[in-house]
Design a protein around this nucleic acid. Sequence first.
DNA 1: CTGTTAGCGCATTCAT
DNA 2: ATGAATGCGCTAACAG
Lengths: 335, 335
Amino acid sequence: MVTIKDVAKRANVAVSTASYALNGVKKVSEETRRKVLQAAEELNYRKNGFAADLKKSKTQTIALILSDLSGPFYSELIRGVQDIAVDHGYDLIACNSLGGQNSTAAKFLTERRVDGCIILAHNITNEMIEKSASPAFPIVLLDRQLERAHTVPIIVDNKNGGYKATTFLIQKGHNNIAFIGGPADSHDGQMRFEGYLEALQEHHIDFQSRWKVTGNFTREGGELAAKIIAAQDERPTAIFVANDEMALGAMEYFQKVGIRVPEDISIIGFDNILESKYTAPKLTTVQHPKYEMGALASHVIFQLLDGEETEKSFTLHTELIMRETVIDIMTKLRG
Amino acid sequence: MVTIKDVAKRANVAVSTASYALNGVKKVSEETRRKVLQAAEELNYRKNGFAADLKKSKTQTIALILSDLSGPFYSELIRGVQDIAVDHGYDLIACNSLGGQNSTAAKFLTERRVDGCIILAHNITNEMIEKSASPAFPIVLLDRQLERAHTVPIIVDNKNGGYKATTFLIQKGHNNIAFIGGPADSHDGQMRFEGYLEALQEHHIDFQSRWKVTGNFTREGGELAAKIIAAQDERPTAIFVANDEMALGAMEYFQKVGIRVPEDISIIGFDNILESKYTAPKLTTVQHPKYEMGALASHVIFQLLDGEETEKSFTLHTELIMRETVIDIMTKLRG
DNA sequence: CTGTTAGCGCATTCAT
DNA sequence: ATGAATGCGCTAACAG
């Protein structure tokens, strides 16, 4: 391994001089600078970033920890984070938390390999987060309500989103509305469900537990849930599905078995993933501010890093996206 | 910042003992181990991973460099890489190469921050790659034909894939076949086109340049391309689209303007992204071995790292996925 | 089983 | 403008 020492030797200068030359510090004459650069080139010298970071005790990079690096949902979030990070001259690396305590993510959290991090992964424990956060290592939490020193949560108003979705259905004349939810440990899913409940109550519609079915936020989960709903003797006229992926799965199932969307059953999703715009019919859904969330998270990290004051927590709002999978019940009856 | 020294002091042991205890080396008595651990706990000690890496000159992580962290295509690839990496006890971090020479990716390439890397990004120059590769830093190149020492390319047989797709269309009786390609600098796209050409020639079908239109591999590009094709007075009976995303866009356009797929026009795509299975009608396409590619890349990295011999390069094959968007021209004429 | 010590590769202060 | 010397936090060889 060729080090800066080797370069210095070859260029007949001291290490410090080599370092200056390599890093563009202007203390060194053009003459020697070129000598050093050439020596480095000849030896194919690569600097060891860690050593540099160790010395400077600054990594100039932030990490984004996701429970799963793949999935359509994350694309926009990542873009948001990235855009702001590069603005600040920081690097972004993404890693996943599969494996929990032993994951790559854990290493970044506990070993000071980055200057700060943004977490959207529910298999990282609150305890780990609390222990890791410090003035020099701020953490932004996405979709997790945990206020601590040096830790700021950004959540989206899932409950209100669920409320809006359900209210919209009710306004369209539906009062037999099913709910396809997420896994029990999903805080998001739970909040969306509460919004659903609230809308129901407000309109004096009884909640029917047989019409609450739980999926796992995947396309397949949506199919299965749809199947369960379709199998019952009385069928709801509309479904609020807790995320778009499941909604797409449900739509597919209904199409397969000849139940028409929206003529026979209306569907509203949640998230507004890219894909939802391209289905036939186009999915009516609730906009989740993914990009904004990423960008804001990035912003907050840098404020924290700069020692500025920030809000204790942030809440982002949702928005109804009306497309083609919800039909007015009157239209339906006439049809 | 609390260091291992502080911990040692508080526990009344030497640094080495603290290090052993912290790292679970069994040279130390249970008694002292607990003492050290407790001291660490009390001081909220976090180890500096860099310092450790520096000392060990091993990072135990590999990087995956993508030109864009988002996009449906990458999900499966990432899974493949990841699965193998964790098998080997390695961590995986993903970073993107947006920004070219100054990107995060570049840092990882040139600053030895990881033990090896897998690159699927065409804005990283060959030169950079050549300079970075070394026995201690193997590089696996995806979809880029560049054989060098310590650098092994994995490519998919795009040409043959294009050939298969086109031949399939011809066998179904089509001889007016348009091609929607990718950007000019896409090697993949170019190869797929060559396969198309070869199939045409083999069946003595003249290539018509007006039926070659170029998109940018996005959904919108596909829509636009479809529009251009539809606008011509004579219309092809089939289209080979160089990737699924564009095929989806094209299908959407055709549906919008009342051109039926496949009754009026057959479409075959390329990649077999998850989504293509969920369209109506379901997209006929060519399978791109994404997961396998990732897994293989990972494998190769570890072989290289272990100093084993590997093939100079790998070629992965494609497979026709027959679904619903290609119709036999006879059926069509009868219809 | 525990302590002393020598670097890992680099940036940087203080002389010169 | 340049060089010698120091130490960042950690691991591991060696000595006790």
